[in-house]
Design a protein around this nucleic acid. Structure first.
Lengths: 134, 134
DNA sequence: CTATTTGCAAACGCTTTGCCTGATT
DNA sequence: AATCAGGCAAAGCGTTTGCAAATAG
């Protein structure tokens, strides 16, 4: 379940383009959005390829998959652990620029029988744009 | 998107049974597991009804939906905010008994433009059962 | 009584996969 | 040359939904 069966990984132009799109945005796009973007560079790329590569890139640790509470996954070009904020009104996902609390892991390790390696935190509320809309 | 259009809510035997199952376990079952359990009491209940009621109960605030990083959602009979732990080996989800850090919300509210109402945290690692397996 | 809920099954929508051709090393 | 990746389309799969019949209040 947590296997790491990496095989040879070719850097095809599709894979490169997908990674570039993801690295070039601060947003946390869906697979479909990535697909639309990459199509401008490689018009005949297929959605299946986008999905396959998003998974490969995630396995390689170059991107991060965010699948909190939604039907479709979002992808983050920044694989460093960081917190996210999801707007309850518009659904957009943002980065939260506060340091990750490593101390939380320690707290759990010391107080429970679990062996924690990392944690994810997502904040919910209203984003600046939606605050201004009302 | 965050509306609360509650209408009259009937407490049908199906709804009651689903809630009871969810309240009676400390695990965080999938819809399908709930379905199987409730079938023992109401053999002809349909999966669609289970899904519908899980959603209604969540809207009513009586249960909680956990849809972190997985193809299917898990449901939690305890609607109080609390932390979870997901085992990277077996996929099981557990409760983590440390207090919720409300201070995190404050930290974000004071340092960003977001208006945070709550946050969710999930820890990842290896559960006691899987630690012993190796 | 009548608006809500159920059962059933079909529809949905995102994601994965099989197959075969094309590209990479 | 051998293997990995892509394109296409079909399949998968958890979840949602339309509809007529049942039922709670």
């Amino acid at each position: 379940m947590v296997k790491n069966k990496r095989k040879k990984t070719r850097m095809t132009k599709q894979r490169k383009a997908i990674l570039k799109v993801l690295k070039s945005t601060k947003s946390h796009p869906t697979a479909d959005w990535v697909y639309e973007q990459v199509k401008e560079e490689i018009p005949n790329i297929s959605l299946g390829t986008v999905y396959r590569n998003l998974n490969v890139l995630a396995e390689m640790g170059k991107i991060m998959v965010l699948d909190y509470g939604s039907t479709y996954s979002r992808y983050d070009g920044n694989p460093e652990n960081h917190y996210h904020f999801k707007c309850l009104e518009c659904g957009r996902v943002y980065d939260v620029d506060i340091p990750v609390k490593e101390s939380l892991n320690k707290e759990v390790n010391e107080n429970t029988a679990f062996k924690v390696t990392y944690h994810r935190t997502e904040f919910y509320g209203v984003c600046p744009e939606c605050q201004n809309k009302n």
